[in-house]
């Protein structure tokens, strides 16, 4: 299956090692990635809040570009998925809205027709490839206890997106289990990472992240696994800010799912992916999970766990 690949600004410009892991694993499952001149999706919270009309029209333009090439769009970011899927829903369920947006698009010689589907990589791996198909291609099991976080914009609004259960998501957990990992349930699993208002109010945003980390730390995981680059940055770089602001000592490795998939499949080049991580001990955590490095995986959060402020 060939898709118009929509890496999104955050992966392409800030987390190229995540893009690398996607480009490593996709061909292994015959998922073809075609690059097209996409703009920002645009970002679902700020841009939509500024002007829903602008947001909808920019999203319609991106979908129209994929339609011109007869391709469906494969997103890798929950935010891009939300914007494109919600815009598609609005355009497909209201002829008035579509006509209005198409009048705007006519100014740049494009038209939204509604032919292209919008999917996220989680759906392709879980629903199309399937956990059995994933498991069969792994060379090694990763012995790790993890907490998963799918990302708000992959789950809600549930009735429109229909990706997974919004209150009890299970697909990312099934995917991590296919790699040999244990997925541990935790408090506030479907809670936001706080990234949506980082620019508007930094203090509130990191207080939300503090709450999220409090829930995850209770079950002493070895790592967190996400399927969204914004959640990835929020968790990985954000935990240092939380530590500074609230006197905690979190040191939790964070992975985007396909990074661990590439490791479990034994693909070439995973060292260069993991070296892009910022949390101390990330590479060691993977080495231990692979059975290298002697001692069994020790929960970093258990060792350096939260301290009361």
């Amino acid at each position: 299956m060939k898709y118009a690949f929509f890496p999104g600004c955050t992966i392409a410009d800030r987390l190229p090692f995540i893009e690398k892991s996607i480009r490593l694993v996709c061909p292994e499952y015959d998922i073809g990635l075609v690059g097209l001149p996409f703009t920002c999706c645009p970002e679902p919270n700020s841009v939509q809040s500024f002007s829903q009309y602008t947001w909808l029209t920019m999203a319609a333009r991106n979908i129209a570009v994929a339609e011109e090439h007869d391709l469906d769009i494969l997103t890798a970011c929950a935010g891009c998925f939300e914007s494109l899927a919600m815009a598609k829903h609005m355009l497909d369920t209201s002829a008035d809205t579509r006509a209005h947006v198409n009048r705007a698009l006519a100014n740049i010689g494009r038209e939204y027709t509604g032919q292209a589907r919008v999917v996220h990589l989680l759906q392709v791996l879980h629903d199309d490839v399937g956990c059995k198909g994933i498991e069969e291609r792994t060379l090694r099991q990763l012995r790790m206890r993890v907490v998963t976080h799918s990302g708000c914009h992959l789950l809600r609004p549930e009735r429109v997106l229909q990706v997974d259960l919004a209150e009890a998501p299970a697909k990312l957990d099934a995917l991590v289990r296919a790699l040999g990992m244990e997925s541990v349930d935790y408090m506030d699993k479907t809670m936001c990472c706080g990234a949506g208002i980082r620019g508007v109010n930094r203090d509130i945003s990191f207080a939300v992240l503090r709450e999220k980390f409090a829930g995850m730390s209770m079950v002493h995981p070895d790592a967190a696994v996400v399927f969204c680059p914004t959640c990835f940055i929020s968790f990985e770089a954000g935990q240092r800010v939380v530590n500074r602001m609230f006197g905690t000592e979190y040191r939790l490795p964070v992975f985007y799912y396909t990074e661990l998939l590439a490791v479990a499949m034994g693909l070439e080049g995973t060292e260069s992916i993991l070296s892009g991580h910022r949390v101390q001990g990330t590479e060691e955590t993977v080495a231990r999970a692979m059975g290298h490095g002697g001692t069994p995986a020790q929960a970093p959060m258990g060792t350096h766990g939260a301290r009361e402020v």
Binding site: P44, N45, Q48, S49, C152, H153, R156, P157, E158, A166, E167, T190, M191, C192, G194, A195, G196, I197, V200, N201, I204, S205, V208
Partner: peptide, 11 residues
Amino acid sequence: WYCAYCLMCEQ
């Protein structure tokens, strides 16, 4: 503007 657009309230 403090809404983080996580959509949990709607859910």
